[in-house]
Design a protein around this nucleic acid. Sequence first.
DNA 1: ATGAGTGCAAAAAGTTTGCACCGCT
DNA 2: AGCGGTGCAAACTTTTTGCACTCAT
Lengths: 185, 185
Amino acid sequence: MVSDLAPKDVSVSPEEKFREFLTTRGKRLTQERDIIVREIFADHEHFDVDDIVARLDRPVDGRRVSRATVYRTVAQLEEAGLIRKVARANDREVYEHDYGYPQHDHFICDKCGTLIEFRNDAISAILENVALEFGFRMSGHRLEASGICADCAKPPTGRHRKLDMIWFNVAAGCWRRWTFAPRPG
Amino acid sequence: MVSDLAPKDVSVSPEEKFREFLTTRGKRLTQERDIIVREIFADHEHFDVDDIVARLDRPVDGRRVSRATVYRTVAQLEEAGLIRKVARANDREVYEHDYGYPQHDHFICDKCGTLIEFRNDAISAILENVALEFGFRMSGHRLEASGICADCAKPPTGRHRKLDMIWFNVAAGCWRRWTFAPRPG
DNA sequence: ATGAGTGCAAAAAGTTTGCACCGCT
DNA sequence: AGCGGTGCAAACTTTTTGCACTCAT
Protein backbone atom coordinates (compact mmCIF):
# COMPACT_ATOMS: atom_id res chain seq x y z
CA MET A 1 0.00 0.00 0.00
CA VAL A 2 1.37 3.34 -1.01
CA SER A 3 1.51 5.98 1.66
CA ASP A 4 -0.72 8.88 0.75
CA LEU A 5 0.39 10.76 3.81
CA ALA A 6 3.90 11.93 3.21
CA PRO A 7 5.77 12.95 6.38
CA LYS A 8 5.41 16.53 5.31
CA ASP A 9 2.54 17.38 3.05
CA VAL A 10 3.70 20.26 0.93
CA SER A 11 0.87 20.12 -1.55
CA VAL A 12 -1.25 22.47 0.54
CA SER A 13 -0.45 26.13 0.72
CA PRO A 14 0.55 27.65 4.05
CA GLU A 15 -2.64 29.72 4.05
CA GLU A 16 -4.73 26.60 3.66
CA LYS A 17 -2.75 24.81 6.32
CA PHE A 18 -3.25 27.74 8.63
CA ARG A 19 -6.97 27.84 7.93
CA GLU A 20 -7.22 24.16 8.84
CA PHE A 21 -5.44 24.84 12.09
CA LEU A 22 -7.62 27.82 12.91
CA THR A 23 -10.80 25.97 12.08
CA THR A 24 -10.02 23.19 14.52
CA ARG A 25 -9.74 25.86 17.14
CA GLY A 26 -12.90 27.67 16.24
CA LYS A 27 -10.91 30.59 14.93
CA ARG A 28 -11.03 32.43 11.65
CA LEU A 29 -8.70 33.10 8.80
CA THR A 30 -9.21 36.82 8.58
CA GLN A 31 -7.88 39.00 5.82
CA GLU A 32 -5.21 40.32 8.14
CA ARG A 33 -4.01 36.82 9.01
CA ASP A 34 -4.04 35.86 5.38
CA ILE A 35 -1.97 38.89 4.45
CA ILE A 36 0.55 38.10 7.15
CA VAL A 37 0.92 34.44 6.22
CA ARG A 38 1.38 35.30 2.57
CA GLU A 39 3.98 37.87 3.45
CA ILE A 40 5.87 35.47 5.68
CA PHE A 41 5.84 32.73 3.06
CA ALA A 42 6.66 35.08 0.20
CA ASP A 43 10.28 34.03 0.58
CA HIS A 44 12.20 31.48 2.62
CA GLU A 45 14.32 33.88 4.59
CA HIS A 46 14.56 34.09 8.32
CA PHE A 47 12.57 36.92 9.79
CA ASP A 48 11.52 38.61 12.97
CA VAL A 49 8.31 40.41 13.80
CA ASP A 50 9.77 43.76 12.96
CA ASP A 51 10.70 42.60 9.47
CA ILE A 52 7.13 41.63 8.76
CA VAL A 53 5.73 44.82 10.22
CA ALA A 54 8.12 46.79 8.04
CA ARG A 55 7.15 44.85 4.94
CA LEU A 56 3.49 45.49 5.65
CA ASP A 57 4.18 49.16 6.04
CA ARG A 58 1.83 50.16 3.24
CA PRO A 59 -1.70 48.80 2.92
CA VAL A 60 -2.22 45.43 1.23
CA ASP A 61 -5.62 44.90 -0.36
CA GLY A 62 -6.57 48.19 1.21
CA ARG A 63 -5.73 46.93 4.69
CA ARG A 64 -3.08 48.18 7.03
CA VAL A 65 -2.05 45.45 9.43
CA SER A 66 -1.06 46.49 12.93
CA ARG A 67 1.99 45.41 14.83
CA ALA A 68 -0.17 43.83 17.50
CA THR A 69 -1.87 41.62 14.97
CA VAL A 70 1.45 40.52 13.55
CA TYR A 71 2.56 39.47 17.02
CA ARG A 72 -0.69 37.66 17.61
CA THR A 73 -0.58 35.91 14.26
CA VAL A 74 3.06 34.90 14.47
CA ALA A 75 2.32 33.26 17.80
CA GLN A 76 -0.46 31.28 16.21
CA LEU A 77 1.62 30.31 13.22
CA GLU A 78 4.13 28.92 15.64
CA GLU A 79 1.43 26.96 17.44
CA ALA A 80 0.24 25.69 14.10
CA GLY A 81 3.73 24.43 13.38
CA LEU A 82 4.11 26.56 10.28
CA ILE A 83 7.02 28.53 11.64
CA ARG A 84 9.43 28.09 14.51
CA LYS A 85 11.85 30.15 16.50
CA VAL A 86 15.41 29.52 15.46
CA ALA A 87 17.46 32.00 17.37
CA ARG A 88 17.50 35.30 19.09
CA ALA A 89 19.40 38.10 17.43
CA ASN A 90 19.43 41.78 18.20
CA ASP A 91 17.12 41.09 21.12
CA ARG A 92 14.47 39.75 18.87
CA GLU A 93 13.17 36.27 18.27
CA VAL A 94 14.09 35.06 14.81
CA TYR A 95 11.73 32.73 13.02
CA GLU A 96 11.88 30.52 9.98
CA HIS A 97 9.49 28.37 8.02
CA ASP A 98 8.82 25.01 9.55
CA TYR A 99 6.46 23.71 6.94
CA GLY A 100 7.63 21.35 4.26
CA TYR A 101 11.24 21.93 5.23
CA PRO A 102 13.66 19.48 6.75
CA GLN A 103 14.98 20.00 10.24
CA HIS A 104 18.25 21.85 10.23
CA ASP A 105 20.46 23.82 12.55
CA HIS A 106 22.47 27.02 12.46
CA PHE A 107 25.75 28.66 12.98
CA ILE A 108 25.35 32.21 14.15
CA CYS A 109 28.22 34.64 13.79
CA ASP A 110 28.91 36.63 16.94
CA LYS A 111 30.24 39.49 14.87
CA CYS A 112 27.91 39.99 11.96
CA GLY A 113 24.91 37.98 13.10
CA THR A 114 24.80 35.94 9.91
CA LEU A 115 22.88 32.71 10.21
CA ILE A 116 24.36 29.76 8.35
CA GLU A 117 22.05 26.82 7.89
CA PHE A 118 23.25 23.27 7.88
CA ARG A 119 21.65 19.91 7.98
CA ASN A 120 22.81 16.92 9.93
CA ASP A 121 20.48 14.05 10.58
CA ALA A 122 22.82 12.42 13.03
CA ILE A 123 22.17 15.15 15.56
CA SER A 124 18.42 14.62 15.47
CA ALA A 125 18.94 10.89 15.74
CA ILE A 126 21.17 11.26 18.77
CA LEU A 127 18.66 13.55 20.42
CA GLU A 128 15.87 11.08 19.86
CA ASN A 129 17.85 8.44 21.66
CA VAL A 130 18.83 10.62 24.57
CA ALA A 131 15.25 11.85 24.92
CA LEU A 132 14.10 8.26 25.12
CA GLU A 133 16.48 7.63 28.01
CA PHE A 134 14.97 10.50 29.94
CA GLY A 135 11.40 9.71 29.09
CA PHE A 136 11.28 13.12 27.51
CA ARG A 137 8.70 13.52 24.78
CA MET A 138 10.72 15.66 22.39
CA SER A 139 8.87 17.85 19.94
CA GLY A 140 11.80 19.60 18.36
CA HIS A 141 15.08 21.25 19.04
CA ARG A 142 16.93 24.45 18.54
CA LEU A 143 20.65 24.37 18.04
CA GLU A 144 22.76 27.43 17.51
CA ALA A 145 26.48 27.10 17.33
CA SER A 146 28.13 30.42 17.94
CA GLY A 147 31.49 31.67 16.78
CA ILE A 148 32.98 33.65 13.96
CA CYS A 149 32.00 33.09 10.37
CA ALA A 150 34.59 32.64 7.66
CA ASP A 151 34.16 36.18 6.37
CA CYS A 152 34.50 37.85 9.73
CA ALA A 153 37.44 35.64 10.69
CA LYS A 154 39.35 36.85 7.66
CA PRO A 155 41.07 40.04 8.83
CA PRO A 156 41.48 42.91 6.41
CA THR A 157 44.61 42.39 4.37
CA GLY A 158 47.89 44.26 4.24
CA ARG A 159 47.85 48.01 4.04
CA HIS A 160 44.11 48.27 4.18
CA ARG A 161 44.18 47.27 7.78
CA LYS A 162 44.06 50.75 9.17
CA LEU A 163 41.18 51.90 7.07
CA ASP A 164 39.26 48.75 7.81
CA MET A 165 39.83 49.19 11.49
CA ILE A 166 38.10 52.51 11.30
CA TRP A 167 35.20 50.87 9.66
CA PHE A 168 35.48 48.22 12.31
CA ASN A 169 35.02 50.77 15.01
CA VAL A 170 32.35 52.80 13.35
CA ALA A 171 30.28 49.81 12.47
CA ALA A 172 30.18 48.74 16.08
CA GLY A 173 32.48 45.79 16.09
CA CYS A 174 32.29 44.06 12.77
CA TRP A 175 33.42 44.26 9.21
CA ARG A 176 30.06 43.03 8.13
CA ARG A 177 28.06 44.15 11.04
CA TRP A 178 24.64 44.36 9.56
CA THR A 179 24.23 41.28 7.48
CA PHE A 180 21.18 40.25 9.40
CA ALA A 181 18.27 42.35 10.57
CA PRO A 182 20.12 45.64 10.76
CA ARG A 183 18.98 48.22 13.22
CA PRO A 184 18.72 51.83 12.28
CA GLY A 185 21.27 54.00 14.02
CA MET B 1 56.21 15.60 28.24
CA VAL B 2 53.33 16.00 30.61
CA SER B 3 50.84 18.69 29.80
CA ASP B 4 50.69 21.25 32.56
CA LEU B 5 47.87 23.02 30.87
CA ALA B 6 44.75 20.93 31.29
CA PRO B 7 41.95 21.78 28.85
CA LYS B 8 40.10 23.36 31.70
CA ASP B 9 42.10 24.60 34.63
CA VAL B 10 39.89 24.22 37.65
CA SER B 11 42.56 24.84 40.23
CA VAL B 12 41.92 28.56 40.20
CA SER B 13 38.81 30.00 41.80
CA PRO B 14 36.26 31.75 39.63
CA GLU B 15 37.05 35.02 41.40
CA GLU B 16 40.71 34.67 40.52
CA LYS B 17 39.89 33.72 36.97
CA PHE B 18 37.66 36.75 36.72
CA ARG B 19 40.36 38.99 38.13
CA GLU B 20 42.77 37.73 35.49
CA PHE B 21 40.25 38.52 32.79
CA LEU B 22 39.54 41.96 34.14
CA THR B 23 43.19 42.79 34.52
CA THR B 24 43.93 42.03 30.91
CA ARG B 25 41.28 44.55 30.07
CA GLY B 26 42.47 47.22 32.45
CA LYS B 27 39.46 46.68 34.64
CA ARG B 28 39.14 46.06 38.35
CA LEU B 29 37.78 43.33 40.56
CA THR B 30 35.71 45.51 42.82
CA GLN B 31 33.99 44.30 45.94
CA GLU B 32 30.66 44.35 44.16
CA ARG B 33 31.96 42.17 41.34
CA ASP B 34 33.56 39.83 43.83
CA ILE B 35 30.32 39.50 45.75
CA ILE B 36 28.41 38.73 42.57
CA VAL B 37 30.87 36.12 41.35
CA ARG B 38 30.90 34.39 44.70
CA GLU B 39 27.13 34.37 44.80
CA ILE B 40 26.87 32.97 41.29
CA PHE B 41 29.40 30.24 42.01
CA ALA B 42 27.98 29.42 45.43
CA ASP B 43 26.05 26.60 43.80
CA HIS B 44 25.92 24.99 40.40
CA GLU B 45 22.34 25.77 39.57
CA HIS B 46 21.10 27.61 36.56
CA PHE B 47 20.20 31.18 37.25
CA ASP B 48 18.98 34.39 35.74
CA VAL B 49 19.78 37.95 36.66
CA ASP B 50 16.72 38.27 38.80
CA ASP B 51 17.75 35.27 40.88
CA ILE B 52 21.05 36.86 41.71
CA VAL B 53 19.52 40.22 42.48
CA ALA B 54 17.08 38.48 44.81
CA ARG B 55 19.85 36.58 46.53
CA LEU B 56 21.77 39.79 47.06
CA ASP B 57 18.73 41.42 48.52
CA ARG B 58 20.38 42.13 51.86
CA PRO B 59 23.83 43.68 52.16
CA VAL B 60 26.90 41.44 51.88
CA ASP B 61 30.02 42.69 53.63
CA GLY B 62 28.06 45.83 54.28
CA ARG B 63 27.45 46.39 50.57
CA ARG B 64 24.17 46.40 48.74
CA VAL B 65 24.68 45.51 45.10
CA SER B 66 22.41 47.13 42.56
CA ARG B 67 20.55 45.43 39.78
CA ALA B 68 22.43 47.47 37.20
CA THR B 69 25.74 46.20 38.49
CA VAL B 70 24.52 42.62 38.36
CA TYR B 71 23.58 43.08 34.72
CA ARG B 72 26.92 44.67 33.98
CA THR B 73 28.86 41.99 35.80
CA VAL B 74 26.97 39.07 34.33
CA ALA B 75 27.74 40.42 30.88
CA GLN B 76 31.40 40.51 31.74
CA LEU B 77 31.38 37.05 33.25
CA GLU B 78 29.96 35.85 30.01
CA GLU B 79 32.68 37.60 28.06
CA ALA B 80 35.22 36.07 30.39
CA GLY B 81 33.84 32.64 29.59
CA LEU B 82 32.94 31.90 33.18
CA ILE B 83 29.24 31.62 32.49
CA ARG B 84 27.16 31.17 29.40
CA LYS B 85 23.58 31.56 28.32
CA VAL B 86 21.81 28.24 28.11
CA ALA B 87 18.23 29.09 27.37
CA ARG B 88 15.54 31.65 27.69
CA ALA B 89 12.73 30.93 30.11
CA ASN B 90 10.02 33.20 31.36
CA ASP B 91 11.37 35.91 29.08
CA ARG B 92 14.66 35.94 30.86
CA GLU B 93 18.08 34.74 29.79
CA VAL B 94 19.12 31.73 31.82
CA TYR B 95 22.80 31.25 32.57
CA GLU B 96 24.94 28.45 33.89
CA HIS B 97 28.55 27.99 34.88
CA ASP B 98 30.92 27.48 32.01
CA TYR B 99 34.10 27.13 33.97
CA GLY B 100 35.55 23.76 34.76
CA TYR B 101 32.41 22.05 33.55
CA PRO B 102 31.99 19.81 30.57
CA GLN B 103 29.88 20.90 27.65
CA HIS B 104 26.35 19.64 27.92
CA ASP B 105 22.94 20.32 26.49
CA HIS B 106 19.38 20.56 27.74
CA PHE B 107 15.88 19.40 27.40
CA ILE B 108 13.45 22.12 28.33
CA CYS B 109 9.89 21.20 29.22
CA ASP B 110 7.30 23.34 27.47
CA LYS B 111 4.91 22.84 30.34
CA CYS B 112 6.86 23.25 33.55
CA GLY B 113 10.03 24.87 32.26
CA THR B 114 12.26 22.27 33.88
CA LEU B 115 15.74 22.10 32.42
CA ILE B 116 17.17 18.60 32.13
CA GLU B 117 20.89 18.44 31.54
CA PHE B 118 22.48 15.75 29.48
CA ARG B 119 25.88 15.16 28.04
CA ASN B 120 26.67 13.78 24.67
CA ASP B 121 30.09 14.20 23.19
CA ALA B 122 29.03 12.98 19.80
CA ILE B 123 27.02 16.13 19.23
CA SER B 124 29.98 18.39 19.89
CA ALA B 125 32.14 16.21 17.66
CA ILE B 126 29.66 16.43 14.82
CA LEU B 127 29.43 20.18 15.19
CA GLU B 128 33.19 20.52 15.06
CA ASN B 129 33.24 18.71 11.77
CA VAL B 130 30.42 20.65 10.23
CA ALA B 131 31.95 23.92 11.38
CA LEU B 132 35.18 22.96 9.68
CA GLU B 133 33.33 22.46 6.41
CA PHE B 134 31.94 25.96 6.60
CA GLY B 135 35.15 27.59 7.73
CA PHE B 136 33.23 28.63 10.79
CA ARG B 137 35.35 29.22 13.87
CA MET B 138 33.03 27.73 16.46
CA SER B 139 33.34 28.86 20.03
CA GLY B 140 30.47 26.95 21.53
CA HIS B 141 26.92 25.93 21.04
CA ARG B 142 23.56 26.08 22.63
CA LEU B 143 21.16 23.22 22.18
CA GLU B 144 17.73 23.11 23.69
CA ALA B 145 15.42 20.28 22.83
CA SER B 146 11.85 21.17 23.63
CA GLY B 147 8.97 18.92 24.48
CA ILE B 148 7.25 17.49 27.50
CA CYS B 149 9.17 16.06 30.42
CA ALA B 150 8.34 12.67 31.86
CA ASP B 151 6.51 14.12 34.85
CA CYS B 152 4.33 16.45 32.82
CA ALA B 153 3.61 13.75 30.26
CA LYS B 154 2.25 11.48 32.94
CA PRO B 155 -1.41 12.47 33.28
CA PRO B 156 -3.02 12.37 36.70
CA THR B 157 -4.23 8.86 37.46
CA GLY B 158 -7.70 7.38 37.88
CA ARG B 159 -10.18 9.15 40.04
CA HIS B 160 -7.88 12.00 40.85
CA ARG B 161 -8.17 13.21 37.32
CA LYS B 162 -10.88 15.75 37.98
CA LEU B 163 -9.17 17.32 40.90
CA ASP B 164 -5.90 17.43 39.07
CA MET B 165 -7.54 19.03 36.09
CA ILE B 166 -8.62 21.85 38.29
CA TRP B 167 -5.11 22.29 39.39
CA PHE B 168 -4.16 22.04 35.76
CA ASN B 169 -6.33 25.00 34.91
CA VAL B 170 -5.53 27.07 37.91
CA ALA B 171 -1.83 26.60 37.60
CA ALA B 172 -1.89 27.95 34.09
CA GLY B 173 -1.44 24.87 32.04
CA CYS B 174 0.75 22.48 33.93
CA TRP B 175 0.75 20.01 36.72
CA ARG B 176 4.15 21.20 37.73
CA ARG B 177 4.00 24.65 36.38
CA TRP B 178 6.55 26.39 38.49
CA THR B 179 9.47 24.05 38.75
CA PHE B 180 11.83 26.58 37.31
CA ALA B 181 12.17 30.25 38.07
CA PRO B 182 8.61 30.83 39.20
CA ARG B 183 7.09 34.18 38.74
CA PRO B 184 5.00 35.82 41.38
CA GLY B 185 1.34 36.09 40.46
C1' DA C 1 -26.55 38.31 15.33
C1' DT C 2 -22.59 37.24 17.91
C1' DG C 3 -18.47 36.39 19.36
C1' DA C 4 -13.81 36.35 17.50
C1' DG C 5 -10.46 39.74 15.70
C1' DT C 6 -8.38 44.32 14.98
C1' DG C 7 -6.17 48.82 15.85
C1' DC C 8 -4.63 51.89 19.02
C1' DA C 9 -2.40 53.27 22.80
C1' DA C 10 -1.05 52.25 27.23
C1' DA C 11 1.16 48.85 30.03
C1' DA C 12 4.57 45.27 31.15
C1' DA C 13 8.96 43.36 31.70
C1' DG C 14 13.66 42.92 30.96
C1' DT C 15 17.70 45.39 30.04
C1' DT C 16 20.50 49.52 29.16
C1' DT C 17 22.24 54.06 30.09
C1' DG C 18 23.27 59.06 31.71
C1' DC C 19 25.01 61.17 35.46
C1' DA C 20 26.84 62.46 39.84
C1' DC C 21 29.32 60.44 43.32
C1' DC C 22 32.59 56.77 45.02
C1' DG C 23 36.77 54.11 45.50
C1' DC C 24 40.53 51.12 43.34
C1' DT C 25 45.23 51.31 41.89
C1' DA D 1 45.02 62.15 41.33
C1' DG D 2 42.74 59.84 37.83
C1' DC D 3 39.89 56.87 35.82
C1' DG D 4 36.97 52.98 36.18
C1' DG D 5 32.80 51.53 38.83
C1' DT D 6 28.40 52.03 41.26
C1' DG D 7 23.67 53.34 42.39
C1' DC D 8 19.64 55.43 41.05
C1' DA D 9 16.26 56.51 38.11
C1' DA D 10 14.93 57.42 33.68
C1' DA D 11 15.04 55.61 29.11
C1' DC D 12 14.55 51.99 25.73
C1' DT D 13 13.00 47.68 23.49
C1' DT D 14 10.33 44.23 22.60
C1' DT D 15 6.05 42.14 23.51
C1' DT D 16 1.45 42.00 25.71
C1' DT D 17 -3.09 43.70 26.79
C1' DG D 18 -7.60 46.44 27.67
C1' DC D 19 -11.07 48.40 25.18
C1' DA D 20 -14.22 49.98 21.79
C1' DC D 21 -15.17 49.06 17.21
C1' DT D 22 -15.26 45.76 13.14
C1' DC D 23 -16.22 41.82 10.60
C1' DA D 24 -16.33 36.70 9.56
C1' DT D 25 -19.41 33.00 9.84
